[in-house]
Design a binder for these strands. Structure first.
Lengths: 213, 213
DNA sequence: GTCTATACTGAGATAGAC
DNA sequence: GTCTATCTCAGTATAGAC
């Protein structure tokens, strides 16, 4: 449990190699996403993040300054990634009217489960409105998403609200980990099904791989 | 800061009076709702709950056993209360077709901001799916709500999903505390407005009273 | 039923070596 | 760029008095 390779969440790396601090930062943020995602900001420890990233706890603090700054960096990464895939999906072709922008973006959102902990970390951040630093960042981030729907995607306020709402529900279902109670494809509840129209198989394949840590 | 009356979140009580342990439990759960709501399960401390309730920290632990059990009790209280007001709203009369059940229940959900921290505490619980005890309780609780929509209210799976989604968005907006960045009635954003159709004035009146602690 | 005092532990952060 | 050792404090839980 001391070697990087053993516990690393991220892609395999050549064992003996020394990474640039930017590479490490990126790697740690990926790990932080999974840890913050499952335990939340306060519940997560910098040590858990460090282990998941295969580095020592003090080094995580060294690179990011404080746990709070680490969380803020992780949140920003998550939001950038989210808006990144949304923009890609928006720009993608319509395939002859079969996949309108709304559908593409909805699916892109669900596909983000591949980036483990992203949905949950954002959702946790959104709940921390009372926290001075994190709350402010969360509101800003949420506003960015809202503006994407309104300005870039061109939805009206009502359509945007519905979109956002479905997104929040999906995040909730992921955070709840209904998979844990109902096993694999057979017993999954109607409740869970109803949340992932046409994406269920994919979700069922990916979610159980997201270790609770 | 030692007297009960000074810091109590809940209703004024006669200073010198000794409460039954059930009364205390109820009072502490109310306080716990606000504290867990703003800081989350891990972020909240039993001491903050104790202060908010006007009792000593060890006594909170004494009454509930552990912080986890306190959270579970608080979660259950919140869910009971939620389903309670939903059932009331469902049973209420239609007022000549002006307020169908869906609308009444939606409004009842928003009116629950009066029970400070309820929405946020539930939302926090829903995100803790990876936690053995809390995750299981949260899934159970979420399923109860789902069944209310399906069985008692008679919605089909799709309608129920839409309902739940709007609810998750509303909880998110409350947790985000957009009020904090945009002050009172004047500067409130479109984003916030869009989430509380016809309920904005009420929300704007209550939310700012919910102290961040 | 409720408090004060306190034991114990876990976790963030710092110092300093390599 | 990264580690080990360690300080320090906050927070849960226990003991025991009133």
């Amino acid at each position: 449990m001391t070697s990087a390779a053993t516990t690393a969440t991220t892609a395999p790396e050549e064992p003996g190699r020394r990474l640039s601090s930017d590479e490490r930062r990126a790697q740690i943020i990926l790990a932080a996403l999974t840890v913050f995602g499952s335990r939340g900001y306060e519940g997560a420890t910098t040590d858990q993040v460090a282990r998941a990233a295969g580095v020592s706890q003090p080094y995580v603090v060294r690179l990011f300054g404080t746990k709070e700054k680490l969380f803020l960096a992780t949140l920003e990464f998550g939001l950038d990634r989210l808006l990144g895939v949304f923009r890609e999906a928006l720009a993608a072709s319509d395939e002859g009217g079969e996949r309108p922008a709304g559908k593409r973006i909805g699916e892109a959102y669900i596909d983000l489960i591949e980036v483990r902990g992203l949905h949950q970390t954002l959702a946790h951040a959104y709940l921390l409105g009372s926290n001075p630093a994190i709350g402010a960042a969360a509101r800003q981030g949420f506003a960015r998403v809202w503006r994407f729907f309104r300005d870039e995607m061109g939805l009206d306020a009502d359509e945007a609200r519905v979109f956002l709402a479905e997104g929040m529900l999906i995040s909730t279902m992921i955070g709840l980990r209904i998979v844990d109670d109902y096993g694999s494809d057979t017993q999954i509840t109607e409740l869970f099904r109803a949340c992932f129209p046409n994406k269920l198989p994919h979700v069922l394949e990916v979610l159980p791989r997201s270790e609770p840590l």
